[in-house]
Simulated scan of single mutants.
Amino acid sequence: MSRLICADFDEFEEALYGVEGRYLLRSRQQRDWRLHVVELDGVALMFGREGAGTVYSGVGLPGFFNIFLPLSRHECTVLGGKRLDRRLIGWMVPEAMFHIDASQPASWMTVAMSCELVLRWAQQHEDEFDLSILSRNLVCVAQQDLAPLIWLALRLLRIDHCAPQDLHVPAAERAAQAELMALVFHSLLPVTLAPRNHAGHQQILRRALELLEATPDAPLHMSDLCQACSTSERTLRNLFTRYLGMSPHRYLMQHRLHAIRRAILHAQANETITEICARFGVWDFGRFAGLYRLYFGELPSQSLRSRRVLAEPLNSR
């Protein structure tokens, strides 16, 4: 994590990620300027706390799309000429000018996403993605409650600060990145679009389940299922809910829990829970341990201890 506490706005301004612009102070400085950045291999989560009322004018960097979400002083913040509230979210495209006017010192969060990742997400969600948002800045009413997005962002901030070794391994970063982008776009895009009529639903579902069966101990994500089935997440979501009674996200979560339990029960003598979980993209161990106990009636550490007791030779007990 990059953590920055500045006495004035110049250093703060230079450290901003995914944008390039200038601040003008519109009130006297009242506090330090603070910036926290969590980088997830092509996605950057940024929390800012400004020290004064400001006007910011800038452009998105060529390689990034951004969302902007105030966390305080909503009523004092104007983005693109529109006064914000707790339901509005800002979207900025690469190289397009935008203006943010905050009459009071405010706190905010942004998510900067590489063009490559955004275009890949759009392709995987082609039957629900509005391609027009790729070409213009906008301020829109969030399509769902923003609390889960903010809660996830704060969890990532906490884990990155307290246990960065859990988050910054490839599988964990990819899992966190996918979870964050899903909430960003589900906040931006309508959730009630009419589904298209796709042939071969049973075949699509069979391919998804065959992939899960063929890779029982691999960390799989929605993008893997979409690619293997040559379909969108919306189609998979509809099929899993219709035929299996749960969303593919929940099914993947249960698949991962069972895979981790198998790995724990077959662990080598020197393997730790952290090493095992890292292979499956676990980045929030507290939440994972709670889910594990909910499904299996014991903590992962208890499963590992039981495995080692059973593995001990009788004459060593």
Rank of each mutant, 00 (worst) to 15 (best):
L239C: 02
E210N: 12
L211I: 08
L212G: 03
A182V: 03
T235A: 08
L220E: 02
A176I: 09
S223L: 07
A194N: 01
Q165M: 07
L189Y: 01
C162V: 11
L211Y: 05
L236C: 10
A208D: 11
P219K: 00
L193P: 01
L167M: 07
L211F: 04
Q144G: 04
A172Y: 05
P216E: 04
R196H: 07
R196W: 04
A172F: 04
R237D: 14
L209N: 06
P219V: 00
Q203I: 11
R155Q: 14
D145C: 03
A142E: 05
L212M: 15
L209M: 11
C226R: 04
P219L: 01
L149A: 01
Q177D: 00
L239H: 03
T192C: 08
L146A: 00
A176K: 05
A172T: 05
I204V: 15
A199C: 07
V169G: 07
A172E: 04
S187D: 05
A218L: 05
D224H: 13
S230V: 12
E173K: 11
R174G: 02
T235S: 07
L157R: 15
V184G: 00
A218R: 13
I150M: 08
L146E: 02
Q144C: 11
H161N: 03
R206F: 12
P195N: 08
R207S: 13
L156E: 01
A163D: 11
Q144H: 00
C162S: 11
A214P: 00
L205G: 00
H201Y: 08
P164W: 05
L180F: 03
L183H: 06
H201N: 15
E213V: 09
M222D: 04
A228W: 04
Q144L: 08
V141F: 06
M222N: 04
L154Q: 15
F240R: 10
S232L: 10
I159T: 15
L156I: 02
A163G: 01
V184T: 03
L180T: 03
N197S: 14
F185I: 10
H221E: 13
